[in-house]
Amino acid sequence: MNYLLRGIGVLTTVGLVSLLAFSLPSGEARGDGGGNTLPQLKNKNWQQECASCHIAYAPAFLPKASWRRVMGGLDRHFGENASLDPATQADILRFLEANAADSGTSRMGSKVMQRMGANEAPLRITETRWFVRKHDEVARATWSRKSVGSAANCAACHQQAEKGVFDEHDIRIPK
């Protein structure tokens, strides 16, 4: 009986929380739907520009100092010229800083920061201690499969990466 009541309680809470989460306007949503789901963010330039070559990596994966380094070197962006006009570049950097791992706006960001050294500003998400630890069971050969390409291709395994959902049960490692 006790369990039944508790079960109903849990279900009601989950229902209410998800209702709340989905009814919030996405641009203003500060709460994330759990540790492995990112807040739904909107920024036209971030989505359009960053996502023309790769998925628009969430700002919560790196600290502000990292984003400043990334955005300061777009003319040699991991071996490619990804330069932008100054206004677009400044707009994207503002957005990244406002939602960065150390901005206190997401649980995912806090987890990334827990393992970040004080003066660390990695250029790659895959270099963060948080990322390395989260993926320590993935063999090197898996990363280099043709279907995956590299560790930069989140969506190869995280089926809903583009929506910011990194839940364990949404992972399907391709052959």
Binding site: A51, C53, A156
Partner: peptide, 11 residues
Amino acid sequence: PKQPGQTRVGK
């Protein structure tokens, strides 16, 4: 040029 291409990270 009538076929889609792919970026280095597979997009």
